[in-house]
């Protein structure tokens, strides 16, 4: 008998229900874990996703896509297979998809983080027999400190630059990271400007009830009016653009998990790198796997070989599967944002 979920050239496939989860090729029915470009791809005939993703997906994939939405925890039956979406803590609307059929339970994690960022619905462990886990940061050098410490560092950096008469340019992905950063900024330090790609995502999330601090469009910045000491949030793909000039003098920084390693931090040629990721760190991955009680773990995108070997040493039945999710570099997010502006 074949597995409840299989890895096909098109994506993760459930034969019993004839649906795909986050397919990377065109299929008829696509169940979506979250709206990032490497998971919610363009061109599927029908999409089924958690409700918070609706506006974002329509912005990114087209107003006229065929999209059905569900609430967290709501059950959808397809051909006798029971599907439900559970918070993954990755970005607003992100979900783990639980699949149950004849008493067997699989959970496809999509992307997740276990630390509660106090903005995104927090990760919930979902008991299952088999857990398909991402492992973007499945290497023990990647351990995050509590996010409060990072926010403090970022705000301190901002306050320092304000004293020096400089502006701050902070780069983070337009969907998820940007809003999380906005949520952690101390708005009393100065006005906050955002790149159009981020403004668009902010509006899509505010429309479904997420609350964000007031921001100004990047194009409205005027040094005579606003002075220096302002904060600008922009996606990494927008770095190096002409718009940066009018914010001079500035200090620039990025917020990403990769900058945990000094070489990566220096490679980007920015002044600062703040270690902040929306993916679970190495201990977080282990914690999530333990919490869901799975005997079997399938590792996708990231340090799959390494992490599955580690899991086998810990006594799990673990293997790796190749997917087109962008574990290695978070590249697809960047290119998606390049298009957005």
């Amino acid at each position: 008998m074949s597995d409840l979920l299989e890895f096909k050239p098109q994506g993760i496939y459930c034969a019993a229900a004839d649906v795909f989860i986050d397919p990377w090729r065109k299929v008829e029915k696509a169940l979506i874990t979250h709206a990032h470009a490497d998971h919610a791809r363009w061109g599927q005939q029908h999409y089924l996703a958690q409700a918070d993703n609706a506006l974002v997906m329509r912005e990114r994939l087209g107003k006229d896509i065929s999209l059905q939405t569900v609430a967290y925890g709501e059950v959808v039956m397809i051909n006798g297979v029971k599907f439900s979406w559970h918070p993954a803590g990755h970005i607003p609307g992100s979900a783990q998809i639980r699949v149950e059929y004849r008493g067997e339970v699989w959970v496809a994690s999509g992307d997740y983080k276990v630390e509660d960022d106090e903005f995104t619905p927090a990760f919930e462990p979902v008991p299952c027999h088999t857990f398909i886990s991402e492992c973007t940061f499945g290497m023990p050098v990647y351990r995050w400190e509590p996010q409060q410490k990072r926010y403090a560092e970022i705000n301190q950096w901002w306050a320092q630059q304000a004293v020096l008469g400089k502006n701050c340019l902070l780069f983070g992905y337009s969907l998820g990271k940007a809003q999380r950063l906005l949520n952690g900024l101390e708005p009393t330090i100065g006005p906050i400007f955002v790149h159009p790609a981020i403004a668009q995502m902010n509006a899509a999330l505010e429309a479904v009830g997420y609350r964000l601090p007031a921001t100004l469009p990047l194009s409205t910045y005027n040094k005579k009016v606003h002075g220096t000491g302002v904060m600008v949030i922009a996606p990494p793909g927008a770095g190096g653009g002409n718009w940066e000039k009018k914010f001079e003098p500035y200090s620039d920084a990025s917020a990403s998990g990769w900058v945990q390693v000094r070489g990566n931090r220096r490679w980007q040629s920015l002044d600062r790198g703040f270690v902040m990721s929306d993916h679970a760190d190495y201990p977080g991955l282990l914690q999530a796997i333990e919490a869901c009680g799975a005997e079997r773990v399938v590792c996708t995108h990231g340090f799959t070989a390494l992490f599955s070997r580690q899991l086998r040493e810990l006594g799990y039945n673990a293997r790796e599967e190749h997917t087109l999710f962008s574990g290695e570099s978070e590249q697809s997010e960047k290119s998606a944002e390049g298009e957005a502006g």
Partner: peptide, 18 residues
């Protein structure tokens, strides 16, 4: 695992401290 981490980080001093 320590060796893999070293290969990834590229600097032994940093790998160990992480």
């Amino acid at each position: 695992m320590v060796e893999e981490c070293y290969a990834h980080v590229g600097d032994l001093a940093e790998t160990l401290s992480l």
